[in-house]
């Protein structure tokens, strides 16, 4: 005897990852930390940007780093050298971090209290776009050596981010990268996005970036306070 049942309820395929991301978001909130997800192609300069940021602007806010790497802990060592606590997630063969991996870390190793948590995702402009981790802001780095057409080739990641940083701007005079053309492409896909130009090598633009971070962090803390206030009056 056979019967058939049609199950029509629509369900998001990556719904589990989204639930986990919400869970992580609560963790970050309980640490009082604003979390930033840094995404880029391999070698665009994520670790270098963090090193320079901590060296130049380390006094403006306290930080903690989560390093996602396929193998090894070279990046984590670089961050340790500039005196910032760092936690490593080895993704093995996976080409992206997912919310479950971050949750596992949060449960295994309590993170230091910090104003900002920087999550360095695995170098890749495709997969990380699909897996939110519980971050408050999504940042994409595009180095000027990669070509100004990349936003057109990878529209999903450039649409779903809050800030695009053009990195290695000290090399602009040596490459044919048209910044205003790149900005035009990005704004066509993501009208609300902010863009910035930085060189981790010379420190150019780092002040503007640090100011952006400070303002995001203080806005985040303001929200936390009013959240708590709402809770208090509700009970």
């Amino acid at each position: 005897m056979h019967e058939s049942a049609d199950e029509h309820a629509i369900e998001r395929i990556l719904g589990k990852n989204e639930e986990m991301a919400d869970h992580n978001r609560e963790h970050f909130k309980s640490l009082g930390a604003c979390a930033f997800n840094l995404m880029s192609a391999p070698g665009a300069g994520k670790t270098s940007l963090l090193e320079t940021t901590f060296k130049i602007a380390g006094g403006k806010f306290s930080s903690c780093v989560i390093e996602g790497d396929m193998v090894g802990d070279l990046d984590a060592d670089r961050i340790k050298k500039v005196g910032v606590p760092v936690h490593q997630i080895s993704t093995g063969r996976s080409c992206h971090l997912d919310a479950q991996m971050v949750a596992r870390l949060l449960h295994a190793e309590p993170l230091e209290k910090a104003d900002a948590i920087f999550i360095e995702n695995v170098g890749n402009l495709v997969c990380p776009a699909e897996f939110p981790l519980g971050e408050h802001r999504r940042i994409v780095l595009l180095s000027v050596t990669e070509g100004d057409d990349k936003p057109i080739k990878y529209p999903v990641i450039f649409r779903n981010c809050d800030l695009v940083i053009f990195t290695k701007c000290d090399l602009l005079e040596h490459v044919d990268f048209n910044i205003s053309e790149a900005i035009r492409h990005i704004e066509a896909i993501n009208p609300a996005v902010k863009t910035m130009q930085i060189s981790a090598k010379t420190g150019y633009g780092v002040e503007q970036w640090a100011a952006w971070l400070v303002s995001e962090i203080s806005e985040f803390k303001q929200h936390l306070k009013s959240d708590k206030h709402v809770h208090h009056t509700a009970h």
Binding site: H2, E3, S4, A5, D6, E7, H8, R12
Partner: peptide
């Protein structure tokens, strides 16, 4: 990026 339907045999 959704599952919209599952046909199940009982």
């Amino acid at each position: 990026l959704d599952v919209v339907n599952v046909v199940i045999e009982i």
